[in-house]
């Protein structure tokens, strides 16, 4: 539960990253995702690692906190490493049963694990950790605003998204409380067979659903009472003006794209494979 508690939570600090326009951050997050996935060469990955560390420094958030965002998918990272490590390409250095461990496999595995880690850290750094849900929804709204011409309810969609994000911590807290409450009446969620586990989940999910419906109803009434009438007549929040901050980030993204697309193929192979 404790690793989940970081999910969707924004940590307020006064940093360049926090102050940045949310649409640009969204774009940057998507671009970085692509760049990291395209980074194959160890030198490029090294460069990306250093860059990520610098970005963490720039966010003024404690290193340990940012690192924690990796925890929910730690399993996937380890799995990827093992799969690659046992894939058996190249020269075998050890083997047992049907598995052959090779140096090449280990290196590829480590690089893949690094890539996934960088991917997750960069995304959460730009999105959840430094961008409050409302700003994120604003960013989405601005990026999607061309769709308005196709009669897509962009504002309503953004409002839905912002409310969903706003309730993530509330619902996690509630799920946690329910789990404790049902445990106190003898339910155990970590032992027993599949059927028992599913039954256990029912005792948490049913009350959680019921309370979510109640919350949704209450919230709808509260919104109505405060004159919500959809997009019509609503004051639009102006996004942050683009400043040197956003332009330098965009410039960085362009440079990185060039780096992986143009420079990377021309780099000399420094590993034997």
């Amino acid at each position: 539960m404790s690793s989940l508690s970081l999910l969707g939570r924004t940590f307020v600090a006064d940093s360049q990253l926090h102050r940045m326009n949310s649409s640009v951050k969204l774009l940057a997050a998507i671009a970085l995702m692509v760049i990291v996935l395209l980074s194959q060469h160890p030198l490029i990955l090294l460069f990306m690692t250093i860059l990520t560390l610098l970005l963490i420094k720039l966010s003024k958030l404690p290193f340990s906190l940012v690192l924690k965002s990796v925890r929910p998918i730690l399993f996937i990272i380890i799995f990827a490493f093992i799969i690659h490590g046992l894939s058996g390409q190249g020269e075998t250095i050890a083997s047992f049963w049907i598995f052959r461990i090779s140096l090449e496999g280990i290196v590829t595995g480590a690089l893949t694990a690094l890539r996934i880690t960088l991917l997750v850290i960069n995304t959460s750094l730009f999105l959840t950790l430094t961008t409050p849900p409302t700003a994120l929804a604003d960013g989405v709204e601005r990026l999607l605003s061309p769709l308005r011409h196709l009669r897509f309810p962009v504002n309503e969609f953004a409002m839905m998204m912002s409310i969903a994000l706003r309730f993530v911590p509330t619902l996690l807290e509630e799920a946690n409380k329910l789990m404790k409450a049902q445990s106190s009446r003898g339910a155990s969620y970590d032992t027993g067979g599949l059927i028992k586990k599913v039954r256990g989940l029912v005792s948490i999910l049913v009350p959680l659903f019921i309370s979510s419906f109640r919350r949704a109803e209450d919230l709808a009434v509260a919104m109505e009472a405060r004159c919500y009438q959809g997009e019509a007549g609503r004051t639009r929040r102006s996004g942050r003006k683009l400043t040197w901050r956003e332009y330098s980030l965009l410039a960085l993204i362009v440079i990185l794209l060039l780096l992986v697309a143009v420079v990377q193929p021309r780099l000399p192979q420094i590993i034997w494979f």
């Binding site: 409050p132 849900p133 706003r166 209450d218 919230l219 509260a222 405060r226 009438q229 609503r234």
Partner: peptide
């Protein structure tokens, strides 16, 4: 169940924003 936005200041602005 009556806080709509994700920060205090934004939530206070919700009503007047709806009124344009």
């Amino acid at each position: 169940n009556q806080i709509i936005e994700s920060t205090v200041a934004l939530d206070v602005a919700f009503g007047p924003s709806n009124l344009g």
